[in-house]
């Protein structure tokens, strides 16, 4: 008769099964903390492989191997946009995304910011950088200052144009659209991580008639940028940052 029908309690049933088992009783053991999580070995191997590939390519480039980059229309458009802003005598607006500095898209965008600031300094055009994170204030200031230094125009650097607006998504969005409408910025760059604010920003920019360049790795935001902007970098601005800043040299 099965245990479930015999009316035995749970304790009695467990004891019966224990008697049937033939395993040896072992002594007390002390658990030791592990020094390596073997379940993550595959991740470690991939990380090492990626690191080795990057180091190999960097060494190869330093040794003089030619690097081939295909032309990206968005990069050429940066010059065009700054040129147009110069003609109109209006500022350039650069939005480095809405995420903090630990986001890889923001890091790539900050490298591009230095390059764009350098070009703006060359043409003697102010560049406005609205920021969505308080932590980005010092990073943004340094990037723009470096760009103006690279262009040989440190005197033209205006600290007040690096503006922290708000950490809140839509407070930031309304702040940026306000800058667009009031200051009539002539060239807009949206490069970084964007979410729901992407269409509000780019459509407002379209209404003001500014030339707009966008780039993000958030694929769900790309259609909005494609519709509303003149040029869209489809995740390739990571390569763009290397190309523009010539980091590999």
């Amino acid at each position: 008769m099965p245990d479930s029908l015999s009316g035995d309690s749970l304790g009695v049933r467990f004891e019966k099964r224990l008697r049937k088992s033939e395993s040896l009783v072992s002594g007390p053991v002390i658990a030791e903390a592990s020094w390596f999580n073997w379940n993550r070995l595959n991740i470690l191997l991939l990380v090492l492989l990626f690191y080795a590939t990057v180091m190999y390519m960097v060494r190869r480039t330093k040794a003089g191997a030619p690097l081939r980059f295909r032309r990206i229309a968005g990069i050429d458009a940066i010059d065009e946009a700054i040129g147009r802003a110069t003609e109109l005598g209006k500022p350039v607006l650069y939005v480095p995304g809405t995420q903090n500095i630990e986001n890889i898209q923001t890091i790539a965008s900050i490298q591009l910011l230095t390059s764009v600031a350098s070009k703006a300094a060359t043409y003697d055009i102010p560049i406005i950088v609205p920021l969505n994170r308080a932590f980005m204030v010092s990073v943004g200031e340094e990037a723009v200052k470096q760009g103006f230094l690279n262009a040989g125009r440190p005197d033209a650097y205006m600290r007040d144009n690096i503006r922290y607006l708000s950490d809140e998504q839509f407070a930031f969005t309304s702040g940026v659209t306000g800058i667009m409408m009031r200051e009539k910025t002539a060239a807009h760059s949206y490069l970084g991580a964007f979410y729901a604010e992407s269409l509000i920003l780019s459509e407002t920019g379209f209404v003001t008639g500014a030339i707009q360049i966008a780039g993000t790795a958030n694929t769900h935001r790309l259609p909005f940028f494609v519709v509303a902007c003149d040029y869209t970098l489809i995740g390739e601005y990571f390569a763009t940052s290397a190309l523009v800043t010539r980091m590999l040299k």
Binding site: R133, A134, F135, V137, S138, I162, R163, Y164, L165
Partner: peptide
């Protein structure tokens, strides 16, 4: 960094 951010808002 929020102190820096607040200072930025108030200064500008």
């Amino acid at each position: 960094s929020y102190v820096l951010g607040s200072a930025n808002i108030l200064r500008i």
